[in-house]
Design a protein around this nucleic acid. Sequence first.
RNA 1: GCCCUGGUAGCUCAGUGGCAGAGCACUCGCCUUGUAUAAAUGUUUUAAAAGAAAGCGAGUGGUCGAGGGUUCAAAUCCCUCUCAGGGCUCCA
Length: 573
Amino acid sequence: MTIDFNNKEEREKFWHSSAHLLASAVLKIFPNAKPTIGPPIEEGFYYDFDIDKPFTPEDLEKIEEKMKELAKKNDRFERKEITREEALELFKSNPYKIELIKELPSEEKISIYKTGDFIDLCRGPHIDYTSKIKAIKLLKVSGAYWRGDEKNKMLQRIYGITFPSKDMLDDYLNKIEEAKKRNHIKLGKELDLFSMQEEAPGVAFFHPKGVVIWNSLMEFWRREHFKRGYVEVITPIILKKTLWIKSGHWDHYKENMYFTKIDNEDYAIKPMNCPGHILIYKSKRRSYKELPLRMAEVGTVHRHELSGVLNGLLRVRKFTQDDAHIFCTEDQIEQEVKGVIDLIDFVYKKFNFDYHVELSTRPKNSMGSDEIWEKATSSLKKALDSLGIKYKINEGEGAFYGPKIDFHIRDSLGRTWQCATVQLDFLMPLNFELFYIGKDDKPHTPVMIHRVVFGSIERFIGILIEHYGGRFPLWLSPNQVMIIPISEEFYDYSLDIYNKLLSNYFRVELDLRKETVAAKVRDAELQKFNYIIAIGKKELENKTVTIRQNNKLIQLPFEDFINKLKGEIQEFK
RNA sequence: GCCCUGGUAGCUCAGUGGCAGAGCACUCGCCUUGUAUAAAUGUUUUAAAAGAAAGCGAGUGGUCGAGGGUUCAAAUCCCUCUCAGGGCUCCA
């Protein structure tokens, strides 16, 4: 029986069996360890153990060796069904298994699997023999709370991966290596885009070249939003406590907020932009004729995230949202949501992003009528369907004030990050007593749509760095053109070309260092310049530049080169 | 926040009780100059793996993350703090 590794179930069966093998090996070396759970995951598997001291990297090696040894023994995975009483007796020394057994519905059959002398409570299924596991790699150890709850005991988790052949493992490890080369923190340093400083944990410092990317991105963003009828506002970062009490943040979001006292009065640093936009909405009496009002802000927010979750640009404490709130009537929800999703889809397609969409529906403790929830949820669905976007539904996981759609992008290491979201909100307009005057000359409560496209500019740039491996398309690239004179006698012509490119707003640099051409080309390549042009005798005489394209050196008149660059950028717009 | 692993020159890292180190970068001097990387090819090796990486020479560069302790002696051992990286429900 061979294993079809393209089949998800087969793969999971294989990894689940590998997890058993891991537990078996751990028990051989650490008889005191108590195995808890060990499921397959998207790539590999893990097993959590309750053990008095954490595993060291050396332990991991030993365990890996033991696993290889056990795999070779070629034990069979034997299934056996037992009664609840037998199960409780069998696992009496392991409180975690007991807890799991007690949670099982009474009608469910309890099964155990035996491999060699290792027995585990397990629903199965499993592969037939351990020798199918030919290649084993334990990847990392970490702490993990029992059932993911920080109130519970911290267990020791071992992550590993296995394959039915050595080649597959090698491919996998190579892939991981490649991904590490693309890591945005590493590239950010190498390309001098941004840095993180001890003096400001969880906050990014953008260097000149990082700002070039930022500004190019925002230029694109503004153009698209202008086209789609958004208006832009700017609101304060520090606002009074009273506002945050009204918005509910003081009660529900306090542990993530930063505070300050000014003239003996409490203020908070905004974690979200909505209250500011609401104040602008309320600054005058609104008519139905003004709706929908699409109010955007590139807003800086601060959120005090747990120190352990910070991660380069992907998870920070200060970030910039490309935020907007659409104030509209209930009848406009569908059309507006569709507009937002279309915008998000348009933007992501520009970058050829792989993303997946999740729709979160009404939770138990929600507010608002059944009718409006139904209307809101179905308008989100309709909008997604009409655009042909596939999505996963998370039943009951929406916010208490409304359903939402999240867009997740995958980074180079396969971790997914939420970027865009669209959230309907029925609550805040009520809390703040928002209204507009309808055709009937009576006040009505508007609906708010919270939405971001990039999500956080910081995070989006982080993902872009990995997505392009630092080699940005021309319009985003901070390093568009590098000019390399072959020798000093061509400096004048090189400078001439440099100035012409500059006056056409290209990001150009001139390498006048006393280095060999080969060394300069190498450095420019490492900085991932889009075009490296060498200037020598031929170019000076013919007023041309030489670029490399598809590994061939091509000479073309300077004017043609400028037009080529312009064309390449225009194509993007 | 919790668990693990780290923090040594601008960068990448070696040094694990007894003199603070290497490569790259940077500065200066000399000599020069036409395309790197990857892929392909292919060399040594049983294999794992390593290698074809940027002209030559000299120089600059450090409170060894911070503070405290142990010791004749601490980058090295211990404690506290700090910053970073990985992980913290994909559920028998």
